[in-house]
Amino acid sequence: MEEQKKIKEGFLGQRMIVLTPNIRKEIKKNPLINTFYLTAIGYYPNAAGHDRERKTGSNEFILLYCMDGEGRIDIQGKTYQLKANMFFIVPKNIPHRYYSHPKHPWSIYWLHFSGSNASEIYQRSLIDGCPLAHSVPFEEYRVKQFNQIFTILEHSFSNKDMEIMNFRVLHFVTSLIYYKEINPAVYSQDAVSSSINFMKSNLSARLSVHELSDQQKMSLSQYLRIFKQKTGQSPIAYFNQLKIQHSCQYLYFTDKSIKEICLKLGIDDQYYFSRLFNKLIGVAPSMYRKMHKK
């Protein structure tokens, strides 16, 4: 492979802003944004030769969002490949190196972030406790938002502008980390999500846990285990909760009697329904209707 000159920074068309210590000091005093805030931000287009190594790590978290080309990230004995529409968060205080592919150099948005909530937000990007190069769908609004952050920083460092800027940074980062939750229809293809969708489509049915596990073509023990792991509840408890939530709509929007609502939801015993409703909602069905009709 042809040897290429290693470059930390300095690319045609790049944008980069690093907040000075006095600005960071003011941000740390601001309770609205000191839990999560930006310290540096940049865009390196077609960054041929980009190679950054920190042998003692960084005291901030670093988000790398690849828009084109590809590169690599070496950290804790592993190498992660970063291609277009992928992101990776480098944890703080961990030795690392990241570098652009010599033949297909990446174009990356990057930012450094810190704050008392930074570690918790970073944890949300892990899968089973391990880092991952996440592949995310391209969303044009993210690019616009990144450019808006730059625009604010290029014009003002006032308290309000720093608040607005950091709110945008938090939204940008979390839109990447929670990409699956933001697009559940696209990503909720696992057995538990499939089972919940089946429940929602059959709220009038009287489904047993055996029928639910059979519908997913899983053993009963495996189905119960993974359902509890993901939702914190048993399948029947979750199914009943969906029924009660739906009953609230009948109570609020219709004049159906309790008996009629029970029939709609596949519940035989009105008294059982009332006890379950009271347990989950906190009031009796008749009281709920009275309160909301007012």
Rank of each mutant, 00 (worst) to 15 (best):
Q229W: 07
A84H: 06
I121T: 03
N147I: 05
S219L: 10
P102I: 09
L263M: 12
G77V: 03
N159M: 10
Y250Q: 01
K5N: 12
S219Q: 11
Y187R: 06
E120D: 14
C262N: 06
V169W: 01
R225S: 14
R97K: 15
S175I: 04
F277N: 00
K230F: 03
N46H: 12
I267M: 10
H50W: 08
F167V: 09
D161I: 06
V18E: 12
T35D: 15
M86R: 06
K8L: 12
E26Y: 07
L111V: 03
K5E: 14
F253G: 02
Q123G: 10
A237K: 13
Q270P: 12
Q215R: 14
Q145W: 08
D269A: 07
F198K: 05
A237L: 10
S194K: 13
I7G: 01
V283T: 13
R275N: 13
H134A: 07
N117K: 14
F36D: 00
G13S: 07
I23Y: 04
K92H: 10
D269N: 15
G42Y: 07
R142D: 01
L265Y: 04
V143A: 08
L111N: 00
I94M: 07
I75W: 03
Q123L: 12
V136K: 02
I73C: 06
G71S: 08
H112R: 12
G49Y: 03
S286Q: 13
K243T: 02
N197I: 06
S58Q: 11
G282N: 06
Y187G: 09
I94D: 01
M162K: 03
R24M: 12
G49H: 04
L132Q: 12
L82C: 05
W106A: 05
P102F: 06
Y37V: 03
K25M: 09
I27W: 02
R225E: 12
Q241P: 03
Q123Y: 11
R72F: 15
F87A: 01
C262Q: 02
S195F: 03
L19E: 00
I281P: 02
M199R: 01
K259D: 11
R72G: 09
Y252M: 10
I121A: 02
L220F: 11
I152G: 01
L207T: 06
Q241Y: 09
S116E: 12
N159V: 14
S100H: 05
M218E: 04
E53F: 00
K259M: 10
G13P: 06
A205W: 03
N278L: 15
G49E: 05
G282H: 08
I17W: 04
S286P: 02
G71D: 01
K217M: 13
N46P: 03
G10M: 10
A191Y: 06
C248F: 04
I27A: 00
V186C: 08
S257I: 04
D74H: 13
S114E: 08
I244V: 15
R54I: 07
